[in-house]
Simulated scan of single mutants.
Amino acid sequence: MRYSRMLEESSFANKRADYFWLLFQSSALLLLVSPLFTLPFLSAPLAFVPIYFWSRRHPSTQISLFGLVTITAPYLPLALVAFSWIINGTWTAAAGDLLGCAVGHLCWFVRDVWSREAIGGVSFISKAPEPL
């Protein structure tokens, strides 16, 4: 939850509705695709969405993993997935984390890349509706 707080304080400062909209869209997307992966709980994938989003918005930040290895922020989600895989011993343990990274990547792409490149502006997908 550290990266969620950091994301809320940096990228979504004074934009609580946009942050809620990101989490709402991520939750809805996870609910839609979770039957394909037979995941009983969606808390871990949902926790990976802000981690992935933060890591993409802060690409030059150096992060120390357990005081042993220093990596840049874009590699943080993959390092956490690999760590989960090593600890649990099977790739199915990391499937939820990978799903969270995929949803986080989709949200990041729509908000930061697609709205800037393809559309040329914000849309209802990338910005919270006015009632929020």
Rank of each mutant, 00 (worst) to 15 (best):
P74T: 03
F66R: 07
Y75K: 06
A95Y: 06
T61Y: 04
G96Q: 01
A17I: 10
F37W: 02
I63L: 15
V69N: 01
F12D: 02
S123V: 11
C107I: 14
R5I: 12
V33F: 03
Y19E: 10
V81G: 00
Y19A: 02
L42Q: 01
S4A: 15
C107G: 03
K15V: 14
R116V: 13
S60N: 13
M1K: 09
C107S: 14
L46I: 12
R111A: 09
G89N: 07
W21T: 15
R111E: 12
G121S: 02
L30P: 14
A82F: 06
H58P: 00
L80M: 12
L76P: 02
P129N: 10
L46G: 09
S10G: 03
L132G: 02
A128T: 06
L99R: 00
A93D: 09
L68S: 02
R116S: 08
I125M: 08
L65Q: 04
A128H: 10
D97S: 12
I71T: 01
W54Y: 15
M6F: 08
L32Q: 09
T70G: 02
R16G: 12
L7A: 06
A95W: 07
G120I: 05
Y19M: 09
A17H: 01
F12E: 06
D97A: 10
L106G: 10
S4M: 06
D97G: 03
S34G: 02
W21Q: 14
F124D: 11
W21G: 11
F109C: 03
I71V: 14
N88H: 13
D18N: 08
L78Q: 07
S55F: 00
T61K: 07
S115A: 13
R116F: 13
P50H: 05
I119K: 14
A44W: 08
H58Y: 00
A94P: 05
Q62V: 11
Q62E: 11
L32A: 10
S115D: 06
D97T: 09
F41T: 15
W91F: 11
E8V: 15
L29W: 11
W108Y: 15
D112I: 14
T61N: 00
T61W: 01
S84F: 05
Y75N: 10
I63P: 09
L7Y: 04
S34M: 13
S84Q: 09
G96Y: 10
L30Y: 08
I86S: 03
G96L: 12
F24Q: 07
G89C: 03
I125A: 06
S115I: 15
L30H: 09
D18C: 14
R2Y: 04
Q25M: 08
A93Q: 05
R111C: 15
T70Q: 11
V49H: 06
H105P: 07
F37P: 05
D112E: 15
A13K: 12
R57F: 04
P59H: 04
G89V: 04
S34Y: 08
E8C: 15
W114Y: 13
S84H: 04
R16K: 11
S11M: 13
S55D: 01
A82M: 01
I86W: 12
L7N: 02
L132I: 05
V103I: 15
G120D: 02
S64I: 08
A94H: 06
E117P: 07
E9C: 02
I87W: 11
S55H: 06
L23E: 15
S11H: 12
F66Q: 03
E130A: 13
G96K: 00
V33Y: 14
H58K: 01
A47I: 05
Y19F: 14
R57Y: 04
V81T: 05
